[in-house]
Design a protein around this nucleic acid. Structure first.
Lengths: 207, 207
DNA sequence: CGTCGATCTTTCCACTGTCAAGATATTCTT
DNA sequence: AAGAATATCTTGACAGTGGAAAGATCGACG
């Protein structure tokens, strides 16, 4: 007889998920600096200490949200990969564009996951989610190289080169120091800009 | 008869500078998230509302600190430039290394200036300081190209390429997702690593 | 010497996260 | 099926935060 109406039950039933959902909304509306545990609780219609039982403290909720964030990041990258021309090179570019899609569509979440107070705990599900995101990129680099890039120093440098480029673009856009084209067909222009940025390089050969 | 002793004068005399100094210390100790206006005031030995008259509100103090931060960033980049082999290419690499020096020596400040809630106001001294930092990098790129890179789209892309690379490295290190070598002669290893990262690239030619 | 404005303090408010203790519902044991 | 143990959620308190308002003190300028 568990009524589907949201009548005032003492026990929520699915509070953990509800808090995470509300937390995501709160995050995107107020940003990471303006994030408030009490507001999230109020949003769900629950007392301000209710989240504690599920997440420990505020940092615990942040970590749980970050885990979702990393998954969303992976989704964004994979979505672009699938839409891309199926060349190793194109898939790598697409991966970077997915990274940027995520940053632009969930800026606060982007800032959250890359601004955690401390690196994810060893063996935590958060760490696993972060690693999953990293592997998505590493695989794309590996497909282009034809070998696991993590096995030799040169390959690792290449993975980091791709990552830092995409990350730098994303972070500086969110900071407001890089302006994006916003003309008529802004989306196409952005894609072209991102493609240029992700591909262009200045290597010793250029000297 | 202005005694040099720090006796309890009602008027501080140089409160603005004192608050900025204390703010920098507080920032480096507690980080941007744990930054507290009241603690800064207490540190100077002044009431918690005293800063308001000089900086407006907390955001005003943050902006003033950010201005210092950008100046420090410029200092770091120029210091490396001067120590570098005087080749346009080497000076550009050095500029990037200076960027990273700043991020590593003042991580909280780095996070502060690139995580401002809103982009610096038009015409503000903060904006001027930020622009000065950007120009330091743009000049280094221009010296290598032999022309002002800001005049044509290709040049702008190159500047942004250098900037985003250096920024991505810095931010991901501070996030804890990129580990730094910390062996015996860690400093030399780091420099080598940074040099690799700043120089390595994956351009369309590589495909 | 007196007035005025700048500087700093005191007091209060709404808001934050966390803790301790109590209320309620669910599940487990017998 | 009944009672006990446990999980879940609420209430109330606390120290901390930034900001507003009003008062105290000082410096400068007539």
């Amino acid at each position: 007889m568990t009524g589907h109406t949201k009548s005032k039950r003492y026990h929520h039933g699915d509070l953990r998920r509800a808090i995470l959902d509300a937390g995501e909304e709160e995050l995107s509306e107020r940003g990471v600096a303006g994030f408030s545990l009490r507001r999230v609780a109020a949003r769900v219609g629950v007392s301000h200490t209710a989240p504690a039982h599920h997440f420990g403290d505020a940092a615990g909720l942040i970590d749980a949200l970050a885990e979702r964030g990393f998954r969303s990041l992976v989704d964004c990258m994979e979505a672009r990969q699938e839409r891309a021309i199926q060349t190793a090179y194109e898939r790598l570019i697409a991966t970077g564009q997915g990274y940027l899609d995520f940053a632009l569509s969930e800026p606060a979440m982007f800032r959250l996951i890359f601004g955690l107070d401390q690196t994810p705990a060893e063996g935590s599900s958060l760490q696993a989610a972060a690693l999953s995101a990293f592997m998505t990129l590493a695989r794309a680099v590996g497909d282009l190289r034809g070998a696991d890039p993590m096995l030799d120093p040169e390959g690792r440098i290449e993975v980091l080169a791709c990552w830092t480029r995409a990350h730098g673009i994303a972070d500086l856009i969110l900071s407001g120091y890089i302006e994006l084209p916003d003309g008529e067909n802004a989306e196409a222009e952005r894609d072209a800009f991102f493609r240029n940025m992700l591909a262009v390089n200045l290597s010793p050969r250029d000297v």
